[in-house]
Design a binder for these strands. Sequence first.
DNA 1: CTCTTGATCTTCT
DNA 2: GAAGATCAAGAGC
Length: 198
Amino acid sequence: MAQNRTLNGHGAGKALKRAFFARSVHEVAPDLIGATLLVDGVGGIIVEVEAYHHTEPAAHSFRGPTPRNAVMFGPPGFVYVYRSYGIHWCVNFVCEKPGSASAVLIRAIEPTHGLAAMRRRRHLHDARSLCSGPGKLTEALGITHKHNGLPLDVPPLALFARESKPDIVAGVRIGITKAVELPWRYGLKGSKFLSKPF
DNA sequence: CTCTTGATCTTCT
DNA sequence: GAAGATCAAGAGC
């Protein structure tokens, strides 16, 4: 409702607490489309995500715990940040329950808050290119290994619910070579801020 | 527009 | 030694 806009000052719904993630990753992933993610006040609307689960070989948790993926095996509502291809950072939200090792990879965001900071970090001006990919959005929001294991409902992280259910599209996940047939990628229909079209 | 390649960390073989 | 939940730049069409 409009009152929430003035209450939280972010133009989005109420703050999401970590309990939001204590259910199936396949329910959480589409429910995150339209939510607003902020890191120190910088971020925007989540428009693309992918679900991963330890029972499926594309997941980092498939072969059991390692120093890198330890957070995935912990409680829901925390962030798992990993190094991708030696150069980028990617951010996931842990779901379900301890040991279930499921998470949602955040793949694209529509920038709405702190555009100047994002442009400075990305050395780019075009809003459509600031957060249109998992490695791009972490750079724009300033997410690094220092954020690995932090709870999503405590500063510097903040998440706000969408105010109405958007049209969501699903498809196969991007950039993987195992379990390629699973349609576990979700996006905001018609968004111009996706990493790739559906 | 598409295709190729370099960057170089973590895990697995 | 090789592959991987990526990105940007350069070549070619």
